[in-house]
Computed example of a mutant assay.
Amino acid sequence: MRDRPGGAELLAEARRLLREELVPTLAGAQRYQALMIANALGMAERELLAGERPLEAERAALSRLLSREGSLAALSATLAAALRDGRLAGDPEAYVLLLEETRSRLAESNPRALEEG
């Protein structure tokens, strides 16, 4: 067992301090850069908390859709090729997979975008 605070908690606290205490003292480009750093810390925190689950879920979904096994990178490349050449045109399962993957990625990178839609 790791000591507390853990990595995600440290990132959350660093982000809080940056946003609440440092950003208000900055202006212009420095303020923008600090906010970008705060957003990156939030993304890293969410990725750390999620662990490998989203990647394994994506690999499993691709494997089902494509009826083959492989690494996430290999299955993603196969999906891209199938989309480019039209093999999955109009395929409702492919559509659902792409939509779910977009939502999953947004949950880590920009969760507020999901609230707006």
Rank of each mutant, 00 (worst) to 15 (best):
A38V: 06
R59S: 10
A60H: 10
A73Q: 12
A61Q: 02
L83S: 01
L49E: 10
L83H: 01
I37V: 13
S71G: 09
Q30H: 04
I37K: 08
P92Y: 07
L26I: 07
E20C: 04
L49N: 06
L48W: 08
L88F: 11
Q30F: 05
R46Y: 03
A57H: 05
D85C: 14
G90Q: 05
A50I: 08
E101S: 13
L75E: 00
L88H: 04
A89Y: 15
E101Q: 13
M43D: 03
A74F: 10
L66G: 02
L79R: 00
G86S: 15
S67L: 04
P54R: 06
A34M: 08
A94N: 02
E52T: 09
L79D: 00
A50F: 08
A29T: 07
A50H: 10
A29N: 02
L49C: 08
L41M: 06
L66C: 06
E100A: 10
R19L: 14
L22I: 15
A61D: 09
G70M: 11
P92F: 08
G86W: 15
A38I: 05
S76M: 06
L48K: 07
A74T: 09
L35Y: 01
G90V: 07
E56V: 08
L66V: 05
N39G: 13
L98M: 14
A44W: 01
E52P: 04
A29E: 12
V96A: 08
E45V: 10
E20G: 03
I37G: 02
A81E: 13
L72G: 04
R46S: 05
L65G: 00
Y32K: 07
E58Y: 03
D91R: 00
R31K: 07
R46N: 05
A94G: 12
S76W: 01
S76A: 13
